[in-house]
Amino acid sequence: MSELTILDPFQVLHIPLGDWVEASLNYLVDNFRGVFRAVRWPIDQVLDGIEGLLQSIPPTIGILLGSLLGWQVAGRRMGIFCAFTLILLGLIGVWSESMTTLSLVLTAVFFCGLFGVPLGILCARHDRLEKVVRPVLDAMQTLPAFVYLVPVVMLFGIGNVPGVLVTIVFALPPLVRLTNLGIRQVPADKIEAARAFGCTPSQMLRRVQLPLATPTIMAGFNQTLMLSLSMVVIASMISVGGLGQMVLRGIGRLDMGLATVGGLGLVLLAIFLDRLTQAMGERSAIAGDHRRWFQKGPLGIFLRLFGIGKLAPRADA
């Protein structure tokens, strides 16, 4: 081989990174397969639960429930909008696939929330942890999905569960980042006031920091949802079902009709979820309206119908 020269030392010097990764991956596969299989279990349970539920609801009932949900969180117009997108999903014939995708996305978002929010809170409290976590989040967002798709298949096999896993990897960062940001952005004077009135750190978190950071955290959830949806197509390469599968099959067979239908389904689903989560993040504060959330919208009407809605708005009034 060539000699070591100053001008181009990398002829000789180099780190065999690829070899290391391969070796360690093989080692993991050989020795820790059980551990990784165990990780599958909770995801499997949640996914099966959500998918079973969503698939068992007939489309008409599903549309009705979805619209009522929209109405509840953001008023009548949102209800109509939800009904419109959901009916369209049914009309283009992708209802069942949409529900599969929705359950994948919801599972991913569930686990993102489970880990992302607490991690974000910890990062907001400890600068050092934030410094460590940040590059990891950068890597999770920028590393091409194909790079970790293969190791995930080697460790977890194929199917919906590993699909959810790669989705989590891709969709987690914005939630952590925005939770961290939201808590750090709580104005210092509010924190000081809360301290002056004798808040313990956990009261501070529950009563001041989390409520004030909610819009930002909800924006994080919104982003996580959107990223999950976009990941679904890539995840379909490891045999994940749903709308992504349709798109992949369509492209593979050059069946543009199939691909477009799948794509449109994804877009409709994205619009539906985006509007819904955005509305949840916005705080409605109408002067004089001191009804609690369950006393408004369809739930309020329902409760009033049965005479329970006449509950005093607050315990003292």
Binding site: P187, D189, A193, A196, F197, R207, P211, L212
Partner: peptide, 10 residues
């Protein structure tokens, strides 16, 4: 109890 210049209401 304290009252603040910036009000610091929630």
């Amino acid at each position: 109890s304290m009252v603040f210049q910036s009000f610091a209401l929630m």
